[in-house]
């Protein structure tokens, strides 16, 4: 079992990090969470480790997002405080500099519904239709439908932001 998990780790770690990164948008945090996922996998020894790993990753990312919201709310409160405001420095060194292309894709991705985005990211992470269905609760037959819609909307949203490039790409 452990050997299987080690093989899974070698083959899936990067995909898990990428999957998490697209949710938390912090590379280091994504790696931390990915390691946590595999630590838990070793501790729990799931029957279907591959799907389990992504399910746990999604849960951790969700928890992380909630924590980020709380932090943001806290910072907002601090900024609203006239006394505390001067002590708040923009965390310039921690800001990730996205280039324009990356930012446009990120924005396009954010236009999708959470369900469509989740399924698109799971598919891109390499999960099969049955695995995606198992994790999201969709019927296997509905995965294709959802993926078709998600792909179309992602490309359309991206092309709306980049009309010059979009026309060519949309019909290529």
């Amino acid at each position: 079992m452990t050997d299987d998990l080690e093989q899974l780790y070698q083959s899936t770690y990067t995909a898990v990090v990428r999957f998490l990164y697209r949710k938390v948008w912090d590379a280091e945090r994504a790696e931390d969470l990915a390691q946590e996922v595999f630590v838990r996998a070793l501790a729990h020894r799931p029957e279907k480790p591959r799907a389990w790993v992504f399910a746990v990753a999604a849960n951790l990312a969700r928890d992380e997002a909630r924590a980020a919201v709380r932090r943001k709310r806290h910072l907002t409160l601090l900024k609203a405080d006239p006394v505390a405001q001067p002590t708040i420095e923009p965390a310039a060194d921690t800001l990730v500099e996205h280039d324009e292309r990356v930012a446009s894709v990120q924005e396009a991705l954010n236009t999708l519904t959470p369900r469509d985005r989740e399924i698109l990211l799971l598919w891109d992470a390499g999960l099969s239709y049955p695995e995606i269905a198992s994790q999201t609760g969709l019927a296997v037959g509905a995965v294709g439908t959802t993926l078709a819609r998600a792909r179309r909307r992602l490309v359309e949203a991206h092309d709306r932001q980049n009309p010059n490039k979009g026309t060519h790409a949309a019909h290529s």
Partner: peptide
């Protein structure tokens, strides 16, 4: 195209 777009969203390092 979708795959290519999502590929841009890879983390900087791993």
């Amino acid at each position: 195209r979708t795959t290519a777009l999502l590929a841009r969203l890879a983390p900087p390092r791993s």
